[in-house]
Amino acid sequence: MTPPDSVSTDVLSPPDRSGGRPERRRAQRRARPSLGARVAGVVGELLLTAGMLLGLFVLWQVYWTDVEVAGDQATAIEEMRQGFEVPEAPEPVQPRTDAPPVMEPVGEAESLAILHVPRWGADYEVPIREGVGMWDVLNSGAAGHYPGTAMPGDVGNFALAAHRQSYGAAFEHVDKLQNGDRIIVETAQAWLVYEVTENYVVTPDQVDVVAPVPGDPAAVATERTITFTTCHPLWSTRERWITHGQFVEWIPRGEGVPADLVEEN
């Protein structure tokens, strides 16, 4: 393509047999774009390129990151289950309400349990990993366990964070949870069942939502609770969506699975 400032005069005007040089020079001058037009053209091309790059970034952020981490999620779950006891009975069993077994702490970014939320579908299961680091935990598609909060099954607040969009979007449908919905944490020893008690929105500085007694950092915990935290609204970090749940029952892994998971499958 011929550059704008070197347009061929052969295209604009045939040669003048009598010399015609002044006409050719005048034609050249008339054809040459002004500085403003050239600047506008360059700016337009840059904006077009930027728009294309932005579109590709959105496609990568929204779609491709989910594809990338799907394999990581499945691999983490498969590796954990290799060390889990296989339930003997495929049908539901009578749950227990006494104190459940408590997990030992694990290292940073190590897998510790599997999260099930029947409200989000029969095939919903994501790994839970220690810590809330962006690249080593949350961007792997896992739900991250806030360090220092209770371990699964322990008295206190078992607090988790996860993405609401991109990178697997583990908490994408958190706003669909209703009071009484079941949250099931699968560990090597047991199935721990919690029920949703409340949902609300806070600002990012309200860290007392992950305290042993949510909202009351000075209180001593006497109950087993679970907390979800994630960004709100979608595609924004302005606020945090909070979901709390209360422990209700548990089933030893070797005896069967919770009725909720049997019914869903």
Rank of each mutant, 00 (worst) to 15 (best):
P258N: 00
V209F: 04
A150H: 12
V201C: 09
G153T: 02
P105R: 05
Q94I: 13
L138E: 04
Q73C: 13
V43S: 11
Q206A: 10
W191C: 07
W120L: 08
V86C: 04
A143W: 01
R25V: 15
P204Y: 00
G245M: 04
M151S: 11
A190D: 05
A161V: 02
G148W: 01
P127T: 02
P217Q: 00
P214W: 00
R164T: 08
T75R: 14
P118L: 02
D98K: 11
G245W: 01
A259Y: 09
W235A: 08
T75Q: 12
D66P: 15
G141P: 02
S140M: 05
V210D: 04
L192P: 11
P15T: 06
V155L: 07
W135F: 14
Q206S: 10
S236Q: 06
A70T: 13
V174G: 02
R38M: 03
G41M: 06
P127G: 02
R240V: 13
E85N: 01
G144F: 03
R129A: 02
A162T: 01
E104N: 10
E249Y: 05
D5V: 14
Q94K: 04
G20A: 10
A27F: 04
V220P: 10
Y194T: 12
M103G: 09
L48T: 14
F57D: 10
P22V: 07
E45Y: 11
V132L: 03
G215Q: 01
Q165D: 10
P22E: 00
I226V: 14
V185N: 02
G71R: 09
R24Q: 15
T197V: 15
G71V: 10
R96C: 08
T65G: 10
S6Y: 09
L48S: 14
R96E: 12
R224L: 12
E110W: 04
T65R: 06
T230G: 04
V210Q: 09
V93R: 09
V210E: 06
A219E: 06
